[in-house]
């Protein structure tokens, strides 16, 4: 039986006069991949950042496994992991040292730390290149390292902003498989993407954000049926227009 991991109720976020998110609600359960789709500036990344405890909500509540992120952000950070769209690694640090740094941050016991590190190495799949400084990595290698950093700690909620952004086809396929397997193992995944094929392949449920509001939500099949569309792209085009 899956449990509710993320609950977002009435979320609003203002930047000065601009209200980027105008009261949105959604829930994500364990083992589920929930995707936010929408045009640029719709409020996807802002929503993800609020859930990731980086930004404070102007109104509304966000609970992760029952923890209010506004009141107890430090506790929430113990059980989440966030992969921003434009993320990087420390250029003077090797991939191995970077993963070790993350493992050291999360775990005090050597056994669990080593197990996390082993998971990280496996997800990154960089073999001997892990010993090279991350400054020498290609974009695809860096992205896989960061995905490994995100999932190696087995968070209850993985927050992935454009996880395959800038990757070539093969690397993107590999990353999608990793995310799918991770959710299948029982974790909750909240992601945003512009790639509708990726969304269809990965997501159990989708919410379409437009101008800071959720205008449609459901499974990809439900949405396609409702709008009489062949692909999610057609749904997106119709709703956005």
């Amino acid at each position: 039986m899956s449990e509710e991991v993320l609950e977002v109720v009435g979320l609003r976020k203002k930047y000065g006069q601009l209200e980027a998110v105008q009261g949105i609600d959604f829930r994500v359960r364990s083992g589920e991949v929930f995707a936010l789709i929408g045009p640029n500036g719709a409020g996807k990344t802002t929503t993800l950042r609020v859930v990731a405890t980086i930004l404070r909500a102007s109104a509304g509540v966000v609970h992760i496994a029952g923890i209010d992120v506004a009141r107890e952000p430090d506790r929430a950070r113990e059980i989440i992991s966030y992969l921003p769209e434009e993320a990087g690694a420390y250029k003077n640090m090797s991939g191995e040292k970077y993963l070790r740094f993350v493992a050291d941050l999360f775990y005090s016991e050597a056994k669990t730390r080593d197990a996390a590190l082993a998971r990280g190495r496996e997800i990154a799949g960089l073999d001997e290149r892990l010993d090279d400084k991350s400054g020498s990595y290609s974009k695809g290698m860096t992205r896989k390292l960061l995905l490994a950093r995100t999932l190696m700690t087995e968070p209850k909620l993985a927050i992935l902003d454009e996880p395959t952004s800038g990757l070539d086809v093969l690397n993107a396929l590999e990353v999608r498989d990793i995310v799918k397997q991770y959710a299948a193992a029982g974790a909750a995944v909240l992601l945003s993407s512009h790639n509708m094929l990726e969304i269809e392949y990965l997501s159990d449920r989708v919410a379409l954000i437009h101008e800071g509001r959720i205008v449609e939500a459901g499974t990809p099949a439900e949405l396609k049926e409702k709008h009489g569309a062949v692909t999610l792209e057609d749904v997106f085009r119709e709703v956005a227009s």
Binding site: I54, R77, L83, G88, V102, I159
Partner: peptide, 14 residues
């Protein structure tokens, strides 16, 4: 600049 701040801020560090 290296886009490491966001991941660091989301890590379990006060």
């Amino acid at each position: 600049e290296n886009k490491t701040l966001e991941t660091l801020l989301a890590s379990p560090i006060g």
